[in-house]
């Protein structure tokens, strides 16, 4: 498609805006690191509309940009661990029949949290933080389901296009 770069720019901007909006939401879930993952909405939609290559490029671009804008070099590292694992799992599950956008998004949310926890455990060399795993699994399940539900509704309403 000839407008590929333009579409990619729009999606990157959208994902960045969602990252920013998320920093504004003052919801503290009481558990460190639990976030809604609004930007993942764009990643899921792009994954379905175009493909995993574009979603991967978008994910990495967003994490690096958002990291420099709202976070730090460290937060980029954690985000990449979660984001890349999440996308890999989503792309993998999407190929199997019997999963809808919601299931794919749930798998993405859960694996995102698992990836971040793994990096955190390595970074501080403390196995005890593994105790957060069940909480993070449930958190990933809920946020993933929510993002998946919204993604499904958005995908229903926007025209198909190939980037």
């Amino acid at each position: 498609m000839k407008n590929r770069a333009a579409y990619f720019g729009v999606f990157t901007a959208l994902a960045l805006i969602f990252s920013y909006v998320e920093t504004l939401i003052p919801i503290n879930f009481g558990i460190p690191g639990v976030k809604l993952g609004l930007a993942n909405l764009i990643i899921v939609i792009v994954l379905y509309q175009t493909g995993w290559r574009e979603a991967l490029l978008l994910s990495v671009t967003r994490i690096v940009l958002a990291g420099f804008l709202f976070g730090s070099l460290f937060s980029i590292l954690y985000s990449l661990a979660g984001g890349l694992l999440s996308l890999a799992v989503m792309a993998f599950i999407k190929r199997y029949k019997g999963f809808s956008v919601i299931g794919v998004s749930i798998a993405g949310g859960v694996s995102h949290n698992v990836g971040q926890l793994a990096v955190a455990m390595l970074a501080v060399s403390t196995w005890q933080i593994g105790y957060y795993l069940p909480v993070l699994l449930i958190a990933g399940l809920l946020t993933g389901a929510l993002i998946g539900f919204v993604s499904r509704e958005v995908l229903k309403r926007i025209p198909e296009r190939n980037m």
Binding site: Y96, S100, G103, P134, L141
Partner: peptide, 17 residues
């Protein structure tokens, strides 16, 4: 939601519990 979605969600919930 499809059947596998529910299975996946239930599986994750069981592991967490």
């Amino acid at each position: 939601m499809k059947r596998n979605d529910w299975l996946l969600a239930a599986g994750i919930l069981i592991v967490a519990v």
